[in-house]
Write a protein that binds this DNA or RNA. Sequence first.
DNA 1: TTGAAAGCGCTAACAT
DNA 2: ATGTTAGCGCTTTCAA
Lengths: 338, 338
Amino acid sequence: MATIDDVAKAAGVSTSTVSYVLSGKRPISAPTRARVERAIDKLGYRPHAGARALASARTNVIALMAPLRVGVNVPVIMQFVAGVVTRARDFDHDVLLLTQDDVSGLDRVTGGSMVDALVMMDIEADDPRVPLVAAAKQPTVLIGLPQDPEGLSCVDLDFEAAGRLAVRHLARTGHTDVALIGSPPEVLQRHTSYAERLMRGLRSQATSSGLTARVEACDSSPSGASAAVDTLLATAPDTTGIIVHNEAALPHVLSRLAERGIVVGADMSVIAVCPTDVALSQRIPMTSIDLPAEDIGKVAVDMVMARLEGDHPSETRLLSPVLTERESSAYGPAGALD
Amino acid sequence: MATIDDVAKAAGVSTSTVSYVLSGKRPISAPTRARVERAIDKLGYRPHAGARALASARTNVIALMAPLRVGVNVPVIMQFVAGVVTRARDFDHDVLLLTQDDVSGLDRVTGGSMVDALVMMDIEADDPRVPLVAAAKQPTVLIGLPQDPEGLSCVDLDFEAAGRLAVRHLARTGHTDVALIGSPPEVLQRHTSYAERLMRGLRSQATSSGLTARVEACDSSPSGASAAVDTLLATAPDTTGIIVHNEAALPHVLSRLAERGIVVGADMSVIAVCPTDVALSQRIPMTSIDLPAEDIGKVAVDMVMARLEGDHPSETRLLSPVLTERESSAYGPAGALD
DNA sequence: TTGAAAGCGCTAACAT
DNA sequence: ATGTTAGCGCTTTCAA
């Protein structure tokens, strides 16, 4: 491998000149620059990442800590990851992938200066990783919210607003008895923040809109989804509006409703909270509140890069939910209220 | 951040002693080792990854190039990724994630010495990435097979054997007219190797077992799956055995068969080629040939590490397919033949 | 506009 | 069993 000295020699300049041609951190005359550039690609020169990191204290790598457990919303996670990786490249950074159950990985990559910054997904209310990254010298952005986001940078869909929006929409379209079919019990037990935030918004809006709102946890399996639907209809037979916040269970919920002879979009209004592509690939196009997973991943990178450049303060950004009406919802028993 | 010199000072030894305590590359007396270790965790010392890479020409990072495009078998990809990441940690390596459409990333990470080795997924017959990695100084393992695997390290399920195995099983259980519902047309157009290999095995076995075998490409959407089923039953109404090699389409294929009043496991035998967890999460437990995605990811790492250590030659490892009978298959019109 | 040279923090050959 | 020291390849002051 050619080194910067080889390039300097070949171009008849000093090593620092080559370095500055590469970094653009000081003006270089056109002819010099040309000679250096020619030497660079004649030799196929690539700066050595380790040497660069050692000298500059910059790695051009960010860490992404993602839940790699198989089974839970994998496609959605991939959308976040894709957003992060794509945007990182825009900032000339690569992505080091860490898994959730490798908490010691945080120490390793931050302490060992392997990365310039971190993005962490799937934050729980009382997440053990948060104190670790708060103590690290690298800036971190969380996708999701811990209990106390004070002093941290976070980004997520505003799930509380999404809960309110969904209920408000159902209320306005004449529904009086609504229900949430939500995350699997395990997710709730871990107090994963998005699940609880959505429930909070839903309950508060139900109260202020004067609706009854029931909540069912829902295992993502077909049988789990069937059970949730059956329980719901047994205990609250007057329900005419369902909010589904569980991508994996959604198709099974719809199947079960169909099996029971309930026509979605007529007898029952169903609003999904999920990425748009998921909403569109169901048996009928779903009225949904978009979970813009890829965008959130990109915003996370934007935020972490901003903190890396200037001394931006930490901030929490909650993206406003957008509801799009499609074919799975209709007016309820009370009719139009607007 | 504490440096190795700080540690040496605190422990009253030389820097090299600290280095050797860390690497275990030469014997250290028990008391010395103890003093060094105490100093290390008193200071919270972490070796600087860049410095280490510069001095040792080892990064302890491997690159994983994975298709991050949303939509195609994402959960299965995640299983491969999980296997790679997990096993890499066993070798004290981290994983740098590259995406397929970032071909220049290969140059960047190899030329810049960012990684010790590479694992590449989703290999196409004439993959443009293959010549690049073949020229790199880092060893590479491909998950999948290019047209000409000569001189390359590859690992995959033996899809050709899987195709044969599936057909042989159907033949033995009395089926005479079988069909493949396979990958989406895009995948076939890219000549993704696994799709073609499975078809080849299926056709050759059909010939030697004297069966008729029809092949349908199949878009992963519900409507694509319905169309494939409908076309199949229209053009080959005597079909009693179907092999499905398309995880995403599988549930929709089963739904369509059910809609048409065809009872899977009685009127129609269906064999799925997919990870076992996918086979088990269908409406009925599927007879399947396992795609051991996580294992394959692990083997890929094992192979790449072996090449990194000794001077192992390149090799291609094809894992033997295993068929497990469950409830989706039964004897066909010709009855038991064994 | 360019060059010289001092590190960055570690590893490993060479000594003892 | 341990210490000394010469790099590894780059960035960035300091000088010109």
